[in-house]
Design a protein around this nucleic acid. Structure first.
Length: 1150
RNA sequence: GGGGGGAUAGCUCAGGUGGUUAGAGCUCCGAGCUUAUAUCUCGGCGGUCCCUGGUUCGAGUCCAGGUCCCCCUACCA
C-alpha cells in the first residue's frame, strides 16, 4: 500500500511540476534568471584563460527587425559557441551589425517620402547621413532584443543605451553622452562615441560604420593601390535610375525578373544603296536615338527582300520572324554574306538631333555596319542595333571599332539636352514618342511585345538601364587558360584571383560543394567594382588630381589629416563620412594642385569583409590578433554569400595577411514557408520572428532549425513546430514522472549510494547509452554536424522514455525493494541530467529550467570560484553528482562542463548491443502476436527464441523479454529445432556467367524451394548442379508457425491457451478497462475507487486481489449481469472470454 | 546562352562497383500497448523507379536521344 500521507506536502528537494508545460513562459522565466544571476557573465569568467576558440560573426544588416531566417543562422552561432564554452574554451562573444550602404538609404528615403537622389541633396547630406545612423541604431537595438529573446548569448549592448545614442544624435552630433564601457562609463560627443562602438574600451557588438572599420578599409585600398590593382574604369554599366547608382556584378544576380518590353523592328537607310534599308531590332526604344552602328555576323547569310514597297536587309534565318504574318508577300532580291555588308554607311532616324550630330558628324555620317562574332542567328534580325553609350557589349565594340558614344540620359534616367523633344523626359516614358518619331521617319517596320528576363535593382526593383560611367575597381588579375597546378609563381603573384583560390584551398567547406562554388565564382568574376555614387557609406579614400590625373589612395584618416591643406576643420569632431570628409583637400603629390576626394562611397561588402582585422585589433594589439585570427569557424546562409561576405572576407584577408580568414565555413540554406515557397506576406505563409517566439517558443524554433539538413531549405511552419514540440514534451514527461515519484518517495540524490556494478541491467544500459550520447554528440558538434547531433538526441529521448522508463516504471513504486528503488531514481536522474546537458546548447531555456529543479533550486551555488577551467563542475575531476550531493551544483546548466569524460565509465557497449537485440526481439514477438490475432494482454505459456545474447546479463535480458512479451517462459532454441526449413540462396555474381540464359529459371526454382540436396553440400536446381561455394543455405521460418525472423533473430510463440491463462488475460483486461475509466473520469493517481463488475466469469474472482491492488480499489463487487446502471458511476463495457462484462467505478470517499 | 544537379509511394527522400520479391520517415486505415506520455509498437493501403530506344542471362543502377524541374552564372540586341 502506498503511503498516502506523502502527497508532496512534505519537504522535497524538488519543486512540483505541471503535467503540461508552458514552454514560452519557461523561456521568459529563464531569461529573467539569466539576467538577474548574471549567468552569461559567469560563463565568460569561468572560461577566461581557456584555449581560444575563435568565432567570427558575419554582420547582420541593422535595417529592419530580425526575421525567422536570421534565427536559423543565429541558432547555429549560439549553439556552437555554447558547446565550445562547455568544453572550456575562451570565446570573444562579439557579434556585429552591418550599417552602411544603399539598403539603409533606401529605407530612410522611403520614410521621408523621397523619390530621387536630388531630394537628398536638397535636404542636405549631413541631416540625411544622421538619419541613416539613427536608423541603424534603432534596428540594432531591436535586433539585440530579438536575439536575446532567441537565447543567443553574446556581449550585447543594452538596447536602451543604443536608443539613447540615437536620440542624442538626433539632437546634434556634438551632444554629450555617457554610456557603459568595459571598465566603466565612457563619455563624449555622441557622433564620436558612435564611431567607437565595439572597440575594446566600449565593448558590445561591432558596427561596420565604426572608425576602426572604415579606417582599416582605407589601409586595404591603399595596399591594393600600391600593388597596382586599383583603377578607374569607364564602362557602360547597369544602372538604377531611381537609386542613381551603378550596380556591381555581385548585385546583379539577385535582380533578374521577367518583364514585358516593347519589341521593335526599325529600318536604317543605306547611304550608298538608295532605297535599301537594314532592319534592326531592339527591346529598349529609349536607346534608338543613341544608335551609332549596326553589327552583322560575318558568316551569316543576309537577304534583301522587297516588302510592301520597301527594300529590306534581314538575316536569312530571321526573315519570316521579322516580317511576321506578311512574310509570304516578301520577294527575295539578293543574298549576301554578312562580311560583304561590313562598312556600309547608313542614316538613322534620329540623325537630326543636335546630340547625334555632335557625336557622329553632320547627318550622323559616322553610322556604319560592323562585324561581330557574337551576333546570333536566332533572335531579332541578325542585325544588331549598337549604342555604345547604352550597353556593355556595345561599349566594348565601340572601343574596338573606334566608334563615338552617345550617352542619352543622366544619373536619374532623364534625357540630357540635345535630344529634341526627348530632352528632360524619363527614359521609360518615351516609348510612344519613339514609335511616333520612327513612324514619321518611315523607319518603323513592326512593333510587338516581348516577355524576357531583365535585370532589376536588387533593392528597389526598378528596371536597370545601362549608362556610360566612371567607377572604381579592384582588378582580379588575369584568368589563365590552364589548370591551376600548372601556374608559375609569377603568374599567381600577378593575379589576385589565384591568390584567393589558394586561400580557399586551405578552408574546410561545409557542405563540401561550397568549395567548388567559391572557386567557380572566383574563376568567373570580373573586376570588383567598389564604388557607388551614393551618400551613406564608407568614404572612398581616393584622390584623383583634376589637373595632372595622378591618383592617390590614402591609407588612414591620420594620413589624411597630416596631408590636409584645406577643410580639415570641417571634418574635426565628425566620423569619416560625407559630407564633412568631402571638405578636406590635399595637395597633389604630382603637380601640387588642390585635390578633393572622389565623391563615391564604398561597396558595403568592403565593410563586412574587413571585420577579421578591424574587430580583432589588427593594428592596436597584434598579439591579440594573432590569438584570434584566423577564426576557427564562420557560418552564414550560403545563397549569396559566396559572392558577397565569403568573397570579401577572403579577398581582404588574402591581400592583407596572405592567409585564410577562417578555418571552417559552414553554410546553410534558406528558410521558406511550410508550402516550400518563399515566405511572402500576401501568400499567408510568412511568420514573423516575434510571432514565432511568442507562439512556438525559441527552444522549439531552435530545435527545429538545428534538426534540419543545412544543405537544404527549411520548410518553416506551425505544423513542423508542433512536431518538434511533441519530441520535447516526451522529455518533459520523463522529467515530470521523476519529479512526481521523487517527491512522493521523498528521494534525494546521493542519499543511498548504489554502485553501478550492482545496478539492474536496465539501469546499466541507460547509463551506458547516456555516456554514448554525450560522446557521439560531442563528436558530431566538433565536426559542426548539428543535424546528426539532433538525430542522436531524439533517439536518446526515445530510448529513455519508451524503453527504459516504460520497462522500469515498477522500480519506482513504493513497494519496490529499497535498494532497487534508489538505484532506479539515481539512474533516471543521472541519465536525464546527461541528456539535458547534451541538449542544452540547442534548447537552452527548457534544459536549464529542468536542470535547476533536478539539482534542487535551493541548494545551487551561484558563486564563481575563479579556480580556473579545470575546476568547472561536470568535468572528470568534479562530477556533477558529487556537486549535487554537497549542494555545490552550479546554478545553471550552462555553467557545467560537457559530460563526456564524466560519464565515460558508464560505457558497456556489449550490453548496448545485447539490448538492441532484445528490443528487436520484442518487436518480432509483438509482430507474431499481431499476426496470430492474440493481444499482448493475453499471457502465453512460452516463447522460443534464437537471440545470440550471451554473457552475465543474458538471463536478466531474457526476463525482460519475457515480461515485455507477456509470456511465462522464454526458451532458447537452435536452428535445428524444426521451426525452420532450409532455403538455398544462389550466389548470383558467382554463377550467373556460367548459367547464362538459364539463370532466371534456376533463380525461380530456388525461390520456390524446388531443390535437391546432394552430397558435399552441393545442390541441384532445375537440372543444374551448384557447388557448395556457389550457394548459401539459410534457415527461414517454416510456413504456418507463429514465428518471426530478422537478421538471425527468431521469436516463436506458443499460442495454445489454458483456462488459467484465459482468466489471467481477463483479469488484465479488467484492470486495463478500470484504468481507462479512471482516466476518463479524471481521477488522480492518489484517488481510490470502488468498483462493480457485472457478468464476468466466476473464475475471475480468483484474481480479485491483483485487480484491487493494481487499480487502487477500496471495494470490488462481483455481480450477475443485467440490472439498472449505477447512477453517478463511470460505466464501461469490457470484452472478456465469456462475453461482454459491465464495469462501474466511482471515486471512493472512504 | 554556358555550367552543374535532379526526376523512385500522396508528401520528403535512401537506394557503392548492374543481381534475386525496390526501401525509410510522414500521411491515411486497421490492430496493439500504456494511470509519465498527445509518446510508442505491429500490420496494411500505396510504385509505369520521367519517356523512348540500346547493351546484358538480368537495368532504378550503364549508354544514346527526348521531356520537365532546381541551383550557379550571364546586360547578347
Amino acid at each position: 500500500m502506498p503511503c498516502r500521507d506523502a502527497r508532496g506536502t512534505l519537504r522535497s528537494m524538488f519543486r512540483p511540476v505541471d503535467a503540461r508545460p508552458d514552454l514560452v513562459s519557461i523561456e521568459h522565466e529563464m531569461l529573467r534568471s539569466w539576467r538577474e544571476e548574471g549567468v552569461f557573465e559567469r560563463l565568460r569568467a569561468q572560461t577566461t584563460g581557456g584555449p581560444a576558440w575563435s568565432f567570427l560573426d558575419g554582420p547582420i544588416t541593422a535595417n529592419n527587425p530580425m526575421g525567422v531566417h536570421h534565427a536559423w543562422g543565429r541558432t547555429y552561432k549560439d549553439l556552437f559557441q555554447r558547446f565550445r564554452a562547455s568544453l572550456g574554451h575562451e570565446l570573444r562573444w562579439q557579434q556585429g551589425f552591418d550599417c552602411q550602404g544603399l539598403w539603409v538609404e533606401v529605407n530612410v528615403e522611403r520614410e521621408l517620402g523621397y523619390t530621387s537622389k536630388r531630394q537628398i541633396e536638397e535636404q542636405g547630406l549631413a541631416e540625411f547621413i544622421s538619419l541613416c545612423k539613427q536608423r541603424v541604431l534603432t534596428y540594432a537595438a531591436r535586433q539585440t532584443e530579438q536575439s536575446i529573446r532567441l537565447g543567443m548569448w553574446m556581449d550585447w549592448n543594452d538596447p536602451a543605451e543604443l536608443l539613447k545614442l540615437r536620440d542624442a544624435l538626433a539632437e546634434g552630433p556634438a551632444t554629450p553622452v555617457t554610456i557603459a564601457g568595459v571598465d566603466g562609463p565612457v563619455s563624449g560627443p555622441v557622433e564620436q562615441l558612435i564611431g567607437r562602438l565595439g572597440t575594446p574600451e566600449v565593448g558590445g557588438s561591432y558596427f561596420t560604420f565604426s572608425d576602426e572599420n572604415n579606417d582599416l578599409i582605407w589601409t586595404f585600398l591603399a595596399t591594393c593601390h600600391a600593388r597596382g590593382w586599383l583603377y578607374k574604369g569607364s564602362d557602360s554599366m547597369p544602372w538604377c535610375a531611381r537609386c542613381g547608382t551603378g550596380i556591381s556584378q555581385h548585385e546583379m544576380t539577385e535582380g533578374y525578373a521577367d518583364r514585358e518590353d516593347p519589341s521593335l523592328y526599325f529600318g536604317l537607310a543605306l547611304v550608298d544603296r538608295p532605297g535599301e534599308e537594314l532592319v534592326a531590332w531592339t527591346t529598349t526604344p529609349w536607346t534608338v536615338a543613341a544608335n551609332v552602328a549596326a553589327a552583322v555576323h560575318p558568316t551569316l547569310d543576309y537577304e534583301l527582300v522587297e516588302f510592301d514597297g520597301r527594300k529590306l536587309w534581314i538575316g536569312a534565318s530571321r526573315r519570316t520572324a521579322t516580317l511576321g504574318g506578311g512574310a509570304p508577300r516578301a520577294v527575295l532580291l539578293e543574298t549576301r554574306k554578312g562580311s560583304e555588308l561590313i562598312g556600309w554607311k547608313y542614316r538613322a532616324p534620329f540623325d537630326d538631333l543636335p546630340a547625334v550630330r555632335e557625336a557622329l558628324g553632320p547627318d550622323g555620317a559616322a553610322h556604319r555596319v560592323i562585324g561581330w562574332d557574337d551576333v546570333g542567328s536566332e533572335e531579332g534580325t541578325c542585325i544588331v542595333h549598337i549604342a555604345p553609350g547604352c550597353g556593355s557589349d556595345d561599349h566594348k565594340l565601340g572601343v574596338a571599332e573606334g566608334l563615338p558614344a552617345i550617352a542619352p540620359i543622366d544619373e536619374s534616367g532623364f534625357y540630357l539636352d540635345g535630344f529634341g523633344a526627348l530632352s528632360g523626359r524619363e527614359w521609360h516614358e518615351v516609348t510612344e514618342d519613339v514609335f511616333a518619331h520612327l513612324t514619321a521617319a518611315k523607319s518603323l517596320l513592326r512593333r510587338e511585345k516581348i516577355t524576357h528576363r531583365y535585370p532589376h535593382c536588387w533593392r528597389c526593383a526598378t528596371p536597370l538601364v545601362f549608362r556610360l560611367v566612371d567607377e572604381w575597381f579592384i582588378s582580379m588579375g588575369p584568368l589563365y587558360e590552364k589548370p591551376r597546378d600548372q601556374l608559375t609563381k609569377a603568374e599567381i603573384d600577378a593575379s589576385l584571383r589565384y591568390q584567393i583560390m589558394s586561400v580557399v584551398d586551405r578552408i574546410t567547406w561545409l557542405p563540401e560543394f561550397g568549395y567548388e562554388r567559391e572557386l567557380d565564382w572566383l574563376r568567373n568574376m570580373s573586376d570588383w567594382m567598389i564604388s557607388k555614387k551614393r551618400y551613406w557609406g564608407l568614404a572612398l579614400p581616393i584622390y584623383e588630381c583634376a589637373s595632372c590625373g595622378k591618383v592617390e589612395v590614402l591609407s588612414s584618416r591620420k594620413e589624411l589629416e597630416g596631408r590636409a591643406t584645406a577643410g580639415a576643420a570641417a571634418l574635426e569632431g565628425h566620423t569619416a563620412h560625407r559630407p564633412y570628409i568631402d571638405e578636406v583637400q590635399i595637395d597633389c603629390s604630382g603637380c601640387g594642385e588642390k585635390v578633393t576626394r572622389v565623391p563615391d562611397v564604398g561597396n558595403p561588402w568592403l565593410d563586412a569583409g574587413i571585420v577579421s582585422f578591424s574587430t580583432l585589433r589588427y593594428r592596436e594589439d597584434p598579439e591579440y590578433w594573432k590569438r584570434w585570427f584566423p577564426a576557427d569557424f564562420i557560418t552564414e546562409s550560403f545563397p549569396g554569400q559566396f559572392r558577397n561576405w565569403f568573397y570579401s572576407l577572403l579577398a581582404m584577408s588574402t591581400v592583407l595577411a596572405s592567409s585564410e580568414p577562417t578555418k571552417t565555413i559552414f553554410g546553410y540554406g534558406l528558410v521558406v514557408g511550410a508550402d516550400g515557397r518563399a515566405m511572402h506576406k500576401s501568400w499567408g505563409n510568412s511568420i514573423e520572428f516575434d510571432e514565432a517566439a511568442d507562439r512556438m517558443g525559441a527552444d522549439v524554433m531552435r530545435w527545429l532549425f538545428v534538426g534540419s539538413r543545412p544543405e537544404e531549405n527549411v520548410l518553416f511552419g506551425w505544423e513542423a513546430a508542433d512536431e518538434t514540440r511533441r519530441r520535447l514534451l516526451v522529455l518533459w514527461n520523463v522529467y515530470a514522472f521523476l519529479v512526481g515519484q521523487a517527491r512522493s518517495a521523498r528521494w534525494t540524490p546521493g542519499e543511498v549510494e548504489v554502485p553501478a556494478s550492482s545496478r539492474s541491467v536496465m539501469d546499466r544500459w541507460i547509463l551506458s547509452r547516456s555516456a554514448e550520447l554525450a560522446s557521439s554528440v560531442e563528436t558530431s558538434l566538433r565536426a559542426y554536424d548539428a543535424y546528426a547531433a539532433v538525430r542522436r538526441l531524439e533517439q536518446g529521448i526515445d530510448e529513455l522514455s519508451t524503453w527504459y522508463l516504460r520497462r522500469t516504471r515498477d522500480q519506482f513504486a513504493a513497494d519496490a525493494p529499497e535498494r532497487e528503488r534508489h538505484a532506479a531514481f539515481d539512474t533516471l536522474h543521472q541519465a536525464l541530467l546527461t541528456l539535458l546537458r547534451v541538449a542544452a546548447p540547442i534548447s537552452p531555456f527548457f534544459t536549464d529550467s529542468l536542470y535547476r529543479n533536478l539539482v534542487g533550486n535551493d541548494q545551487t551555488n551561484g558563486s564563481v570560484t575563479g579556480a580556473g577551467v579545470s575546476e568547472v563542475v561536470g568535468g572528470a575531476a568534479r562530477p556533477l553528482a558529487g556537486a549535487i550531493r554537497t549542494g555545490s551544483a552550479p546554478g545553471s546548466i550552462h555553467l557545467l562542463h560537457w559530460p563526456t569524460e564524466e560519464s565515460a565509465g558508464w560505457r558497456d557497449s556489449e550490453l548496448e548491443q545485447a539490448m538492441e537485440r532484445i528490443i528487436r526481439a520484442a518487436e518480432l514477438g509483438r509482430s507474431v502476436r499481431s499476426a496470430a490475432g492474440i493481444r499482448t494482454r493475453q499471457p502465453l505459456a512460452r516463447a522460443r527464441v534464437v537471440l545470440g545474447v550471451r554473457g552475465a546479463d543474458a538471463e536478466a535480458l531474457q526476463n525482460i523479454l519475457a515480461d515485455e512479451l507477456n509470456v511465462k517462459s522464454v526458451e532458447r532454441v537452435d536452428d535445428a529445432s524444426g521451426l525452420f526449413e532450409r532455403r538455398v540462396k544462389v550466389l548470383l555474381p558467382k554463377v550467373a556467367k556460367r548459367l547464362g540464359a538459364s539463370t532466371q529459371v534456376v533463380m525461380q526454382a530456388a525461390r520456390d524451394g524446388k531443390v535437391d540436396f546432394l552430397a558435399n553440400g552441393a545442390v541441384a536446381i532445375a537440372g543444374v548442379e551448384l557447388a557448395a561455394d556457389e550457394i548459401e543455405i539459410q534457415a527461414v521460418p517454416r510456413e504456418g508457425q507463429h514465428v518471426a525472423e530478422d537478421d538471425g533473430l527468431v521469436v516463436e510463440l506458443d499460442t495454445s491457451l489454458t483456462p488459467a491463462l484465459v482468466v489471467e488475460g481477463d483479469a488484465r483486461e479488467v484492470i486495463r478497462a478500470v484504468q481507462e475509466s479512471r482516466k476518463s473520469a479524471g481521477l488522480q493517481r492518489e484517488d481510490r475507487v470502488e468498483m462493480e463488475i457485472r457478468g464476468a466469469p466466476s473464475e475471475l474472482e480468483q484474481h480479485r486481489g491483483e485487480i484491487v491492488s493494481a487499480v487502487g480499489a477500496l471495494r470490488c463487487q462481483f455481480a450477475k449481469s443485467g440490472g439498472a446502471p449505477l447512477a453517478g458511476w463511470e460505466r464501461a463495457t469490457v470484452a472478456l472470454s465469456g462475453g461482454d462484462a459491465e464495469l462501474f467505478i466511482r471515486r471512493a470517499t472512504e
